[in-house]
């Protein structure tokens, strides 16, 4: 068995574990699945190590790796914030990770050397920071879907997630801007991915203020749920259905 196939099998197993864990969290209790999710994190971490070794580069460059990166980051965040979620919320979060993980069954697994543009330190800083921000925003949206989000502590947790996500995304935007300047002489271009990143940045930056505007606070949940669509368009829509240079 070659290394590439071995790495893929690790993710196959991980995706199955996550699916079963999502059901266990829904039917029984999330306390039973912390260890299996840690195993998933380790397995997927090995997947990235193997691919980094084979590519001689950071493994976030194609469709398969992008989806598995999101899968991995959701699992890491799920373990870290396990006590902040109810069983139902945790189950939805794992189901989201499972959907991202399905990428391993859909996309072609090709080991390719990265093009010269990607060979910069700004790339591995830009991509994981942005993806982790997506993860936190997804978590905030899932938390908002359930009634418990109106409780003060949960509302504060949602704002906290947004603040962390916004900081990460801002860092992603700065590192992406520096990379853009060094590679294309521009920190911003009318590229669909860049426009949609700006949309997300303004949208969630705006939501940081919602707690200070009493008349709008009642719409907080709705704004976070609507945010899911913006993230999906930024992450998947521009990647598959636009003319973006960021197209997968």
């Amino acid at each position: 068995m070659n290394l590439q196939l071995f790495a893929r099998i690790l993710v196959y197993i991980s995706v199955v574990i996550v699916f079963i864990s999502a059901i266990i969290a829904l039917v029984y209790d999330k306390k039973y699945i912390k260890k299996p999710i840690i195993i998933v994190v380790v397995f997927t971490g090995l997947f990235f190590l193997i691919r980094a070794y084979l590519k001689e580069f950071f493994p976030f460059t194609d469709k398969l790796e992008s989806f598995i990166t999101l899968f991995w980051l959701i699992c890491i965040s799920a373990v870290y914030y396990i006590n902040k979620f109810s069983n139902k919320e945790f189950s939805v979060l794992l189901f989201l990770a499972f959907l991202a993980g399905l990428g391993v069954f859909i996309f072609k697994d090709i080991i390719k050397y990265p093009p010269p543009y990607l060979r910069t330190i700004w790339y591995p800083l830009h991509v994981p920071a942005s993806f982790l921000a997506y993860t936190f925003w997804f978590m905030a949206a899932i938390k908002s879907m359930f009634k418990s989000s109106t409780h003060h502590s949960n509302s504060a947790f949602i704002s906290n997630l947004n603040r962390n996500a916004y900081m990460l995304f801002t860092f992603g935007m700065i590192s992406g801007g520096i990379w853009g300047y060094l590679a294309w002489g521009a920190y911003f271009l009318w590229d669909p991915k860049l426009v949609w990143s700006l949309i997300l940045w303004f949208y969630y930056g705006n939501l940081l203020h919602i707690d200070y505007i009493p008349s709008l606070k009642k719409y907080k949940r709705n704004f976070y749920i609507a945010g899911i669509f913006l993230i999906l368009i930024t992450f998947i829509g521009t990647g598959f259905f636009s003319r973006s240079i960021h197209r997968f």
């Binding site: 426009v195 303004f202 705006n206 203020h209 505007i213």
Partner: peptide, 22 residues
């Protein structure tokens, strides 16, 4: 602040429409 919030949302909407038009 409220005006700022609404202006940002309008800006987001015009960016969305711009992205679609482009």
């Amino acid at each position: 602040k409220k005006a700022g919030f609404l202006l940002t949302m309008v800006m987001v909407l015009s960016l969305i429409s711009g992205s679609l038009v482009m």
